[in-house]
Nucleic acid binder design. Sequence first.
DNA 1: TTGTATGCGTTATCAT
DNA 2: ATGATAACGCATACAA
Lengths: 329, 329
Amino acid sequence: MSGNKTVPTMKDVAREAGVALGTVSKVVNGIPVGEEYRLRVEAAIEKLNYRVSSYARGLRSSKTYTIAVMVPNLISPFFSKLVDCINRELSARKYRMLFYATDYDPAQEQELVHLAEQQKVDGIICLSYNPHLQVSPDVPLVSIDRYFGAQIPCVASDNYGGGRLAAEKLVENGCKNLAFLRIGSKLTNEPNKRKDGFIAACEALEVPYTLKIVDDYTPYAAFEEFLMEHFGDGRRDFDGIFCVTDSLAHQIRISLQGMDVRVPEDVQIIGFDGVRHFGDLELTCSTIVQPLEAIAANCVELVLSPRGENAPALICLPVSYGWGGTTRE
Amino acid sequence: MSGNKTVPTMKDVAREAGVALGTVSKVVNGIPVGEEYRLRVEAAIEKLNYRVSSYARGLRSSKTYTIAVMVPNLISPFFSKLVDCINRELSARKYRMLFYATDYDPAQEQELVHLAEQQKVDGIICLSYNPHLQVSPDVPLVSIDRYFGAQIPCVASDNYGGGRLAAEKLVENGCKNLAFLRIGSKLTNEPNKRKDGFIAACEALEVPYTLKIVDDYTPYAAFEEFLMEHFGDGRRDFDGIFCVTDSLAHQIRISLQGMDVRVPEDVQIIGFDGVRHFGDLELTCSTIVQPLEAIAANCVELVLSPRGENAPALICLPVSYGWGGTTRE
DNA sequence: TTGTATGCGTTATCAT
DNA sequence: ATGATAACGCATACAA
């Protein structure tokens, strides 16, 4: 016992094992070394309970095994499950996750990117709402759901296909008059394509449709009015509604039930995301399910792989329909 | 332009500003320095877009402004909201969050503690299911919901009071026959006190009660059987049920409705946690709400404050009742 | 194959 | 108040 109560360093291990510093480093990094030496070093490491300092290592080799992950928050079940999946994917590869929440604030997003750079992470995975995000070219960045340009890979669900699928399912279930309800950022991002796909399918199927689209700052009451207008006094203007998210679908369903409109008997509703009650129970509504595991896997794969020349600029992953009680069948 | 494409270092800033290295360091760290010099340094920092390397800083001063946070997963809305709150609290203090999910695996929890130590974090906040967690004494650790002993501060809700409150509310709402349903780890942890408080209140109020307690590995079907036994064939053995979590309350409600038992007309249900639909909409059931913001604030406060002699060993935070549709009133 | 020495970017301790 | 210099713990090129 040295009697010194400081945390052991590589030098301590070397002294304990009676070998040179470099030898310890090699053992720690899995570089071949004499069997005899290796055992001595391993024993010393065990005895001293030694751990490499990732700060010293990061300083020296600027490889930190850390990825920064940035989403608006962890309260929304969609985001939190996404981060959960990314974390699993990173853990499996022995990477650590530095987490940042942005609260949809572009300035904070920018700030966090800087923080992440300062932290010298090996890469950044972000779901950003800042269209002008400035990112230093020497830290790999992968974007989810927002296309920044060819130099920044973007991973997203097949939002367009999801919109089509929603319309097709509703029609297949007998709907004759459809509506698309959307609340969210006006910025061009991948989820906007949900509407495009929906419209395309409606037109292909020659089914009439109505759009109700409002921005983030519009109170939900705008939808209440819309519903009152089309379902008040026994009116049943629509028999199929596609909502841009499961969250909106949930709220619409509550509102309709408050108006004595039956779901799914009078109106069928399809949401988007695939959110489940308590994260892993039933779907909260019939929905277009986003493949979160696949999205996460692709993000991690992209952010860790050296930015090859032939790196894809946009990866679009297939969605699927999931029944959750708000449609027939 | 130096033409050098490497990231700028403090030395570069010093050269650019025509001052010494130490001066730059002082400016960066807010240590008083001549006005003239400060401006020159700040200009150089701006021009070169310089960022301190937290790895070099961590190596030198072993202060990393990073806290490791460890919970079983981010899928459960309770955990994800908890982590969201902790993250907010850390961000406000300019701390970063290193996130780890454990999947309830004790071995993995231990592994992650080691990783966190290696990472040389300034502290660890964890919600652990490993009763034998070994943690090095020189990294501050704060535990949520599990009391490890006087040397490790624990932050928890007033689970006992919550159990009492649940029973009292049910009785206040007219219930005559209560049941407590629990699924979860058998390990002694703070949430176990929910049952104790419930029982205490039932006995004080002289209301009959029944317990149905199973462990994590029991399939949910055990509860189906229990319900069939007490509510099948028109039986109504209980008119008030206290479930150990909102998640269980949700499942019980679904099962009961499938048996044509009306909630809350025939049976009132109270859960525990305060989980909301989509994180911020209505409560998923009538429930005992845990003060997550307060829990997070206390954890962060404790983990960052030097382990004083008079540091509390257990902080118990008040819960409240929230109506969520599964009780009358 | 093993040991030695240098430097990564900072901070802190000295002289100046 | 400012400038030079020595660590911090590790990886690696180089010498033995």
